[in-house]
């Protein structure tokens, strides 16, 4: 797969999935604490999202960061726009802004920080055709 094909694949994933998370590992098995916290925030909101593991090919991360102008993983996109990484997503979860941004109700039992447990909806996986 060429770098251009990887870039196209990433851009398509961002365009076609309203809530798109690029992470290390998967929502079920995150491979990094930052990715875990970010997917846990989405799980806690019960929003459906697509997730792509960037680890299988180092070029995924290179191309993604070139597109987003953002150096770290995870990266959350909503409606085609970069929302942020773990720090921003966690802050926005706690303030209720994330719920607003993705268009769901903020859970009532707050302000417990999200954990990786108890996802409320099965995350929608993007088939990883890059590996």
């Amino acid at each position: 797969m060429t770098n251009e094909e990887i870039r196209d694949f990433i851009q398509t994933a961002i365009a076609e999935n309203r809530v798109m998370l690029f992470m290390k590992g998967t929502p079920e098995q995150p491979a990094c604490g930052f990715s875990m916290r970010t997917s846990a925030a989405l799980n806690a909101l019960g929003v459906q999202y697509a997730a792509l593991d960037i680890l299988p090919d180092p070029r995924i991360r290179q191309e993604l960061s070139a597109i987003s102008n953002w150096p770290t993983i995870p990266q959350l996109f909503v409606d085609g726009e970069l929302v942020g990484g773990c720090d921003i997503v966690t802050e926005m979860y706690e303030s209720g802004e994330l719920a607003q941004r993705v268009g769901v109700e903020q859970p009532q039992h707050e302000p417990e920080p999200p954990t990786a447990e108890a996802p409320q909806s099965a995350p929608l996986g993007v088939e990883n055709r890059l590996s």
Binding site: F34, P71, T72, L82, G85
Partner: peptide, 22 residues
């Protein structure tokens, strides 16, 4: 927030993800 964090990340450039893992 994105723009604020980018200002800080830009101080370190490619060191983020390199020597500075996180």
């Amino acid at each position: 927030r994105i723009e604020q964090h980018r200002l800080v990340y830009d101080v370190f450039g490619t060191e983020i993800g390199g020597p500075i893992h996180a």
